[in-house]
Every structure is written in structure tokens, then in C-alpha cells.
Nucleic acid binder design. Structure first.
Length: 781
DNA sequence: GCGATCAGGT
DNA sequence: CACACCTGATCGC
């Protein structure tokens, strides 16, 4: 506990920055320990508000948030009514805390008042540092050792967390506390020789289709896979892709009839030659007509004397690139159950990898040096190729990885055309109904984004909208829709790997059976398909993880998912001991304009604001949240103010999945009459129209609504950031507070400096040239 | 009718 | 502005 308190204290907001800041005092551990019996709210509150301070206007509260060069606080707002500098008609003898609610200055039921009319003098408790690590449980991290968590044996235990108490992650095992003593030994050797390599693996993936087409074209025959599927030879004669017969003279329809006949014939042959039952039950007719796509693979198989497995490879759509990442397990899953052939194939594959690795090293050793230059490995600056920097990783700036956003953006669009946001949108091809589906089935969907593919592994991360039969290992970093989109309960593409909390949510909300879920422990190295995998708390939402992959090729890949960097992450020894080759980074706020405060600061702002307005017993407070996310905010509010918060039954069910302690859970109630602080979906607060609806519902009970919208950063064009922006319409007040669960720009910088990867792959590409320029100039200064 | 997917909105 | 998610329309089984 002392460690935890120390860590929490380190996050304390700067107290001297605002002359009118209320005085904070740090709650002691002893005070926390008094919570064993829930005291009456009144008692606790009055005991915590004994110190009288200078009057404080509520609009001053935003000053607590250290915003650089914030404009004077009386800036006009939408209504022009708030932020009245100094209203004093309540200040005489005013005691601002809840004990005040029945005092002489209490307003009449019908009286409408301005929040800014309130003067405040109070002593506010800071967020209790112990909260951030209240259920801290030390875990030793010993690589290679048996994986054990609080529930007991964890190794390979996909069902272990079902019904058991989850003790990991956000809040319960907060990053601030949990990371203090963790040590992770990574056995990846620190090699100086591969520092100049580019992401050849990635390019391979991205260029898969063109390469295959070229290979097919070696014999002088082009395979028009995207349009008609017909072969066109050197003389322009059109051939059937299956039997090779000249069908130039036939009409398009006749050609289709012809090729369909050939397909039917091949299907019949394939059925006759069926060797093993298909464990995976792929749907629809087999696309034997695609055999020519896999000619290289089939030839390779033939050379190994394993032609009898051709059908399986075709059925599973194993093309040359996919082949590289097949594991023994994969082969078994495909239906190659005999050990001998599997051994033969895996051995041949390891030889193949050695060869391609040697070629890659050779290619990259000729890469030009200098900051911002692209390597000459054929990289065209695609999304995954922002690299080729010849600097010592430790000396790199974040800008080194983003030499030109304009270029990147343009090229990113070449992968997923027409999409500004590479990471978050669906490729155009997927919008085209039947055609897209056909392409998916034929394995022509080469648009699996780079950030979801882990180089050197057969793994995909948060790629459920790009489900393909060529992958059996699907990682989910956290339970947010934009990351699990595409995942349905009919998922049948292998295993899903995620944290215990995420697994519970996936099971409960989507209905994925536990048999398909593999729970990953935190801070412990496990081995999946021959690859070491370690997860860390991502400090994003409950259950969110950062994943470290250590493939046999020695090029470790760190996928941040969505994350918020904090200094405790820096104490993870993994960053000292393990050389990260590729960093797949949450670049949501990779722009200097995003420089928001620490969460603790924003939480304190919300607490202060509630304190300031709560003297009126007819005030309803609303705190916005996501399905999962922002919990820390309303839990802190409840704990510090010693007031339960109301949540819906559905929300409580979710909260029960998040691993909160019983002590934390006591602050939630499903009885809405028991609390005047209500947790609501964020979009409820999105418009005053909706807020008005809420207001009408509670017309008899509440005369004022104060809503807090933790929206990340409220940024409007032309207006610089203004922390804790406040809007008011009649008796509804809405605060937009910059409570972010993503890393700020400066946090991203710190993180990149810490990790010093060779390559960075951005998971979000949403910045225009302007912000890129701003970032570059800031960093190079 | 149901689930999955997608567009548009907040 | 972007996040995460909602609603309603549409499609396919």
C-alpha cells in the first residue's frame, strides 16, 4: 500500500498554478480503512468539509486543469449566461458541501439558478490514491515459468475465468500499482545488425495479390483474377483458366458456362479425391477454379511428395504468403492429422523462412541512411512501411517514423481506397455486396490492414472485420466496438485470445462460446503456436491489453491496441530487456494539438464541479460513459464524495464483469431513487435535446441537471483547447471534460522514446498534412 | 423472423 | 475533431 499511495501522490495536480485553487488534502490510508462500515453520507461529508477556504466560483474550477495558455476564464459560451465573474449573493456563510443542502440558502423548488452564481469554499479530497491500486496483487513475472494467476493455474485455461474472480487490469490492478514491481525477462537477443530492416513481412502481405499474379504470369499468361477470371495469353487469346481451351470466340456468357462446367468437373474430381474430413466445415462450394492461384504452393507441395494434400491447401486457401506462417497446429487443424507429413511440411517451412530471412537481410543492408528516407526494399510508403530509418533506435524521434504524413496518407489510400481512416473503416470492396463476398471467399481480400497483422507470426489483432480462413489465432485487445466489429457468435475461424475481462464481455455480450476463447494472463509470458506472448494492462478501458509478441525470428512486435501511456508503464522491465522491432501504435492523438491533462486531474475537476453545485438537493448529476470505459471517473466520484452512483441493471451486469472489488461495487446502485448521480451512456449527453428529455422525466424530482461528458478532447476548429468546457441551456448544464483513455501526444512521444522500435505501424491514420506539419515542427525544435 | 451488415447520426 | 455506439434500413438465410 505505501507504494500505491506514493504512486498516486505523484499524480497530484499542481496546486500552485491557480491562485484560487481550493486547498486539497491527501486522504490517508487510515481514512480509507474507515470504510469497512459504510458511514452515513452526511457524517462523512461534513467531516471532510471542515476547512473553510476562499470563495471559489464554479467557473474557476477549470483552472485546476493545467492547460497551456488557457484563455481567460470568462470567455463567452453558447448561452452567454455562464461564467459571470463574481456573483456574491450566496457567499455569506456559505458552506458548499452537501451538508449545506438544507441550509438557509437552499433554493425554492421552482427557482432556476445559475451554477456560476455559487461561491464555493471548501476542502476537497483528492482522488484517493489507494483507489487506483486498491486491490493490488503482486505477481512475479518469470518468463518461461508456469503461468499462475490469482485464480490458480492459468496455463491454457480457457475456462478458468468463467465464474471466477478476475484479478487483473484496469482499476482493480491499476497500472499505477501493478507495474511497480513487475519484471519481465525477454530472451530476445539485442542485436544491432537488424536495425535497418524494413517491414518486408508486411509488404509481402500487402503485395500478396500482385505478386501472385506476376508469378502466374511468368509463363506468359496473365490471370485476370479481378475481372473475369479468364486467362489471357500473349497473343490476346482468352483461355479457360481451368482446362486452358481457347474460348476467345465465345461470348462472355458462353465463357462463363464453359468455365462453370469445368468447375463442376473439378468439384466432382475433388470430391472423389477427398482424403480427410473437414474439421472446419467451410461453407459453400469449393473454389477449385482458383487452383492456379495456388500453383506455387501446389508445386511446392508436389516437390515435397505431398501432392495428396493439395485439396486441403486449396480448400483452406493457403497461398504462398499464408504458407509462410503455418504452424504445426494449423496443419493439424486443417485436417493433416498424420504426424509424418506435418513434420515434413514444418521442416520445409522453417527452411523457407531461413531463406526469405537471408534475402531480406541482404536487401535491407543496402538501405540508404538518413532520417526520413525510405528504404529501397521496394517499399512504396504503404501504411506498414513507415520505416527504413537508419538511426540508432535509441536516438529516434517520433517524427523519424512519420517522415511525411502527406505521403503516408496518399499511399495508405492506395491500400484502402477512399478511406481517410485506415484503421477504423471498412474497405470499399466490402461495401459491394455480392462481389465483395465472392472475393472474400476466394481469398482475394488483400486488404487486411497492416496494423492488424503481426509480422513473423500467424496472428491477427482486432481484425474481426477481416475474417479469413488463413488465420486461426485472433487477438482482441479490448471490448470496444471498433475493435471487435465483425465478431459474431457464429465465429468459426479458430481461437480468440484476450484478457479475462474482455473474454467475459465477449461471452456475455456477443455470445462467443468459451471453447473459442483463450484467456491471456497479464504480465506473464505464455507460448501460443510457438510464439511467446505477453500481455500488459493498456490503461485504456477495463480489460484492455498491450500485447508483446516474440516470434522465433527475434523481431519482437509490440501491439498497443488502444492505450494510455503512464509513467508506471515505463517501469516495465520489458522495455529495458526486450528490443522491440515493430511497434504497432495507437496513434489516435498523434498530433501536438492533443495535450490533455492526466485523468486524475479531470476526475478532480468533476468532483469539484459536483461539490460546487450539489448544495441544491434538486440537482441531478449525469456522468457519461461507454459500454466499457470511463468507469474510473464515476467510481472516483462516488468514492470521494461518499455517494452511491446509479447505474442501470444492464450496466451493472457489465460492471460485474470488470473485476471490481466488493468494496468498489458497493458504490453502484440500481435503485435510481438512491442516488442523484446517474451514470448514463455518453450519447445521452450528446445533445441538449436528449438532456431535455431526461430533464422532463425527472421534472418533479430535479430542477437542475449537470451533465459531464468525458469526450476525450473537445476540439473545435479555430478554437484552441479549453479544458472542462461548460455549456448551459436553461436548467441544463453540460461539461465537456477532456477525460481521455488514449495517450496524449506527449505521452506518445515518451512511449516511443522508451520503446525505441525499429518500425512503427500506426493503427490510426487520421491526420491531415496540417497536423503532420505541426507535429514535425514541434518535435524537431 | 432473425441475425448480420451497413449507412448515417450523435 | 474523434470516439464509441446508437438507430434504422437492407440483405440473406
Amino acid at each position: 500500500m505505501p507504494l500505491i499511495n506514493a504512486a498516486g501522490a505523484a499524480h497530484r495536480p499542481h496546486q500552485s498554478s491557480a491562485s484560487q485553487s481550493p486547498q486539497f488534502h491527501i486522504p490517508t490510508t487510515a481514512a480509507d480503512d474507515n470504510d469497512d462500515l459504510l458511514p452515513s453520507t452526511q457524517t462523512v461529508l461534513s467531516s471532510r468539509s471542515s476547512t473553510s477556504q476562499k470563495p471559489l466560483e464554479i467557473s474557476d474550477l477549470s483552472l485546476h486543469i493545467p492547460a497551456p495558455k488557457r484563455p481567460k476564464r470568462s470567455a463567452p459560451t453558447a448561452t452567454g449566461k455562464e461564467n459571470v465573474p463574481s456573483i456574491t449573493h450566496h457567499d455569506v456563510g456559505f458552506k458548499p458541501n452537501f451538508g449545506r443542502r438544507n441550509g438557509a440558502a437552499a433554493l425554492d423548488d421552482d427557482e432556476v439558478f445559475e451554477a456560476s452564481d455559487i461561491d464555493l469554499g471548501c476542502s476537497l479530497d483528492l482522488i484517493q490514491p489507494s483507489i487506483l491500486g486498491c486491490s493490488y496483487e503482486t505477481r512475479d513475472v518469470n518468463s518461461g515459468e508456469e503461468v499462475v494467476d490469482g485464480d490458480g493455474d492459468f496455463s491454457g485455461a480457457m475456462n478458468e475465468t468463467k465464474g471466477s474472480k478476475v484479478k487483473g487490469g484496469y482499476l482493480v490492478n491499476s497500472i499505477e500499482s501493478r507495474l511497480v514491481n513487475s519484471t519481465v525477462d525477454c530472451d530476445v537477443e539485442v542485436s544491432g545488425s537488424d536495425g535497418f530492416e524494413s517491414d518486408a513481412e508486411l509488404d509481402l502481405l500487402l503485395n500478396l495479390r500482385p505478386q501472385l499474379d506476376e508469378e502466374d504470369g511468368i509463363s506468359g499468361v496473365g490471370f485476370d483474377t479481378e475481372e473475369t477470371g479468364f486467362l489471357v495469353d500473349e497473343e490476346g487469346l482468352i483461355q479457360c483458366p481451368l482446362c486452358g481451351v481457347d474460348i476467345s470466340d465465345l461470348s462472355d456468357e458462353q465463357r462463363l458456362v464453359h468455365t462453370n462446367d469445368c468447375i463442376d468437373k473439378e468439384d466432382a474430381q475433388a470430391q472423389n479425391a477427398a482424403l480427410t474430413s473437414d474439421k472446419k466445415q467451410t461453407s459453400g462450394p469449393q473454389q477449385s477454379g482458383d487452383n492456379s492461384r495456388f500453383s506455387t504452393v501446389l508445386k511446392w507441395l508436389h516437390d515435397l511428395g505431398l501432392s495428396k494434400y493439395e485439396d486441403i491447401f486449396v480448400r483452406e486457401e493457403i497461398d504462398w504468403d499464408t504458407l509462410q506462417w503455418l504452424t504445426d497446429e494449423d496443419l493439424n487443424n486443417m485436417g493433416i492429422t498424420a504426424l509424418g507429413p506435418r513434420r515434413k511440411i514444418t521442416h520445409a517451412l522453417s527452411e523457407l523462412r531461413k531463406e526469405s530471412s537471408a534475402v531480406e537481410t541482404c536487401t535491407n543492408s543496402h538501405a540508404p541512411s538518413g532520417i526520413g528516407q525510405q528504404s529501397n526494399n521496394g517499399s512504396d510508403g504503404r501504411e506498414g512501411s513507415i520505416n527504413g530509418i537508419n538511426r540508432t533506435p535509441a536516438n529516434k524521434l517520433i517524427t523519424d517514423y512519420f517522415p511525411g504524413f502527406v505521403t503516408n496518407k496518399k499511399n495508405a489510400c492506395s491500400i484502402i481506397s477512399g478511406q481517410k481512416d485506415v484503421g477504423k473503416k471498412i474497405p470499399d470492396s466490402l461495401h459491394k455486396g455480392k462481389t465483395a463476398k465472392r472475393n472474400v471467399r476466394n481469398g482475394k481480400l488483400g486488404n487486411v490492414p497492416a496494423w492488424s497483422c503481426i509480422p513473423g507470426t500467424p496472428f491477427r489483432v482486432d481484425a474481426f472485420r477481416h475474417l479469413r480462413g488463413d488465420c486461426f489465432h485472433w487477438f482482441l485487445t479490448h471490448f470496444h466496438m471498433d475493435h471487435y466489429q465483425g465478431l459474431t457468435k457464429s465465429f468459426c475461424h479458430g481461437m480468440i485470445y484476450c484478457s479475462p475481462i474482455t473474454a467475459k464481455l465477449v461471452n456475455m455480450k456477443i455470445g462467443i462460446p468459451w471453447e473459442r476463447l483463450q484467456v491471456l494472463p497479464l504480465d506473464q509470458k505464455i507460448n501460443i503456436a510457438g510464439i511467446d506472448v505477453t500481455c500488459f494492462d493498456a490503461n485504456h478501458c477495463p480489460g484492455s491489453i498491450i500485447i508483446l509478441f516474440e516470434p522465433p525470428n527475434g523481431k519482437a512486435v509490440l501491439h498497443t491496441g488502444d492505450f494510455r501511456f503512464c509513467e508506471q508503464m515505463g517501469s516495465l522491465s520489458v522495455f529495458q530487456t526486450c528490443r522491440i522491432h515493430t511497434l504497432i501504435l495507437d496513434t489516435t492523438y498523434c498530433d501536438p494539438q492533443y495535450d490533455f491533462p492526466k485523468q486524475e486531474t479531470v476526475i478532480q475537476f468533476v468532483i469539484d464541479a459536483i461539490q460546487a453545485e450539489a448544495f441544491n438537493p434538486k440537482t441531478l448529476f449525469l456522468i457519461g460513459c461507454y459500454t466499457v470505459g470511463k468507469e474510473r471517473l464515476f467510481l472516483e466520484v462516488a468514492r470521494v464524495l461518499r455517494k452511491k452512483v446509479y447505474v442501470t441493471a444492464a450496466k451493472l451486469r457489465i460492471l460485474k464483469c470488470l473485476g471490481f472489488s466488493a468494496e468498489d461495487m458497493q458504490w453502484f446502485t440500481v435503485n435510481e431513487r438512491e442516488s442523484h448521480i446517474h451514470v448514463v451512456p455518453l450519447w445521452t449527453l450528446a445533445s441538449f435535446k436528449r438532456l431535455q428529455h431526461v430533464s422532463n422525466q425527472y421534472a418533479n424530482r430535479f430542477s437542475l441537471i449537470v451533465a459531464f461528458s468525458p469526450t476525450g478532447w473537445a476540439l473545435s476548429k479555430g478554437k484552441k483547447k479549453s479544458p472542462g468546457r461548460r455549456w448551459q441551456q436553461g436548467t441544463i448544464i453540460r461539461y465537456e471534460v477532456p477525460y481521455s483513455e488514449h495517450s496524449s501526444f506527449s505521452e506518445l512521444k515518451d512511449f516511443v522514446k522508451l520503446v525505441s522500435p525499429v518500425n512503427i505501424i500506426p493503427s490510426v491514420n487520421n491526420h491531415g498534412p496540417d497536423s503532420a506539419l505541426a507535429m514535425t515542427s514541434l518535435l524537431s525544435s
